[in-house]
Design a binder for these strands. Sequence first.
DNA 1: CTCGTAACCCACTAGTTAGTTACTTACTGT
DNA 2: ACAGTAAGTAACTAACTAGTGGGTTACGAG
Lengths: 212, 212
Amino acid sequence: MAVTKSRPRDAEATRARILKAAKAEFAANGLGGARVDEIAAKADANKRMLYHYFGSKEGLFKAVLEEAYLDIRDAEQELQLDHLDPEEALETLVRFTWDYYLANPEFLTLVNSENLHKARHLKESERIKVVSRRFVDMMGALLDRGARVGVFRSGVDPVQLNITIAALGYYYLTNRFTGAIVFERDLMTPEALEERIAFNVDTVLRLVRADP
Amino acid sequence: MAVTKSRPRDAEATRARILKAAKAEFAANGLGGARVDEIAAKADANKRMLYHYFGSKEGLFKAVLEEAYLDIRDAEQELQLDHLDPEEALETLVRFTWDYYLANPEFLTLVNSENLHKARHLKESERIKVVSRRFVDMMGALLDRGARVGVFRSGVDPVQLNITIAALGYYYLTNRFTGAIVFERDLMTPEALEERIAFNVDTVLRLVRADP
DNA sequence: CTCGTAACCCACTAGTTAGTTACTTACTGT
DNA sequence: ACAGTAAGTAACTAACTAGTGGGTTACGAG
């Protein structure tokens, strides 16, 4: 009986607190650098609970990662791109991707960490495959629609375009620290961010726009 | 007296072996995941020597990182882009960047690791700043030359373009493991790699080409 | 030949770390 | 009301890890 009473012992809430703390810790230090005791402390939970709900440090990492992917794929679907005209829809997706990375920098670090481990945690997740397919299909439909109307050239691979849109924002933001040194500028001022997203929108539109 | 005689005790050679082993270990496991004992073993050197030459695990990481950056900046300068016409020069740089990442995947992981640590090791390196400036200047000169001749549009920011060229290859390659799952394809077959680099060259040229 | 110095090595330690054992406390269905 | 079960806790451990103490061995200058 799922009545919402205040429970001093709340399994769901404890689980959620652990997951949230783990996300922060894994994002800040990577899988190898993260400390299980630190996660338990930040979650204000006993370490035993962490093992009770997630089995192991890696099990916890897997849960964090899966949630992170499901979250971004969910948010993308809410954009309702098929209600917009193709160019507008594409710009919306480019800006969304950028804004999402900016608002959720942990996502970037988690993905980096998972790739350092050759995606062995994500590989096991069936749910990720389902939402990923929907994501690629969305881009495929958008490109087709744009080509039919004549604003996009035909033959653009939706996978390559998705990778490119992600790359343009992702690289700039994950490598903002070394980037600041190499390029001798603060890449995170409001002006710098504004300039970059405008550049990215321009790059993507020039890439798909029908040749005159 | 720098005579090249075969030395059973060769400080320079031992130092170099440690550096090479460290590069592999740090690239494979990150700064946090790397094991000092493993580095010493792989280098066929005593751990004491590692501390003798590099002071600490972090000192060693800093040396590895600095060398990695100097290497890529060196290789770029050898391209002699000013001997080529602008479009050819730009394509050469895009292809070089891609090939370099493919041939030196450790570079990508090291940069990721350094960004996880907010670039605190690179920040201290004066030599990196010198070669970085030369790198950005090279792109600035190329864009100017192309604009003067009329093949590139003017007003393209060399820093944004450098970031973009790096991003297009870097993202695809570092995230090849999660990418393979999300996009349900092997991103590393010869055909997939060929398709991607062609796409990247196309993307960059469309971006800078003078509007008709 | 021999002495000073730099290269090199083994074995240890102090502190962490993921994971566990053995328990108490509160909630729920009957 | 109470028995069974799930939530929660504290203290422990076995393995590991960065760093060092205290040497020995080879080389080359005089």
